[in-house]
Amino acid sequence: MSSRAPSRSASSSGSPLSVDAPVLELRALTRTHGTGIAEVHALRGIDLSVHAGELVAVMGPSGSGKSTLLTIAGGLDTATSGQVIIEGQDIAGLGRKGVAALRRRSVGYVFQDYNLIPALTAAENIALPRELDGVSVRKARKEARAALEEMKLLEIADRFPDEMSGGQQQRVAIARALVGDRRLVLADEPTGALDSETGEAVLALLRNRCDRGAAGVMVTHEPRYAAWADRVVFLRDGSIVDQTLTADADSLLAAEGAK
């Protein structure tokens, strides 16, 4: 793990011991749908920090709040209370345009159903968010091809989504989520409809990106895929009830717990 020097030494009230500020920090997050008798508490006070280099899996029964957590962390939905802090910025203060810009720049979001644009080729799908962010078309296309090459998918660069297999579409979706050096990757059941070998290839990509410095959060109900994570967080009725760590992450949390 890299020991990056703190550029702006822990301005947050977070742990003085942690060298790296978390890439994603959720503080006392709640989300309530409806009011009065129809009130549903989807999230009840979630605290979660994800650091660079860390892949966190979120598991829990359906209705436990997993997807809500992810959509709020990605700025696709708004919390009822609490804070979402991405790379040190509280997204509540950014306004709608600011959040959209932050999302394009820093957050890669992988959807279960890939969400590729049918009228664009693989390379164009990957280049689009970069173009929207003001990168020149030429540069964005170049980056897209590099991302495809990294995933050994260059041969499908000019195919349209309906000319790809599900596994290829999902890998293109991941390339799109990762292009341009985004530091936070959020994935909602990224292995959903894939067979086990393809699912594993998708996981290996996420794992690899986190090993190279991104922070990742993945919602999954598949224990076999969750096991690729450094940390597995168990959600029940909108609260984190438990979490597991690998040996490496154990020492990390011990340091955090000592604050």
């Binding site: 224990p223 096991a227 597995v232 168990f234 690998t246």
Partner: peptide
Amino acid sequence: IQSQRHHTVKAMQDYTRLKA
């Protein structure tokens, strides 16, 4: 159930590292 799930998933994390 949860304490067993924790233990089982943890074991899977360890096996998965070995596998990687």
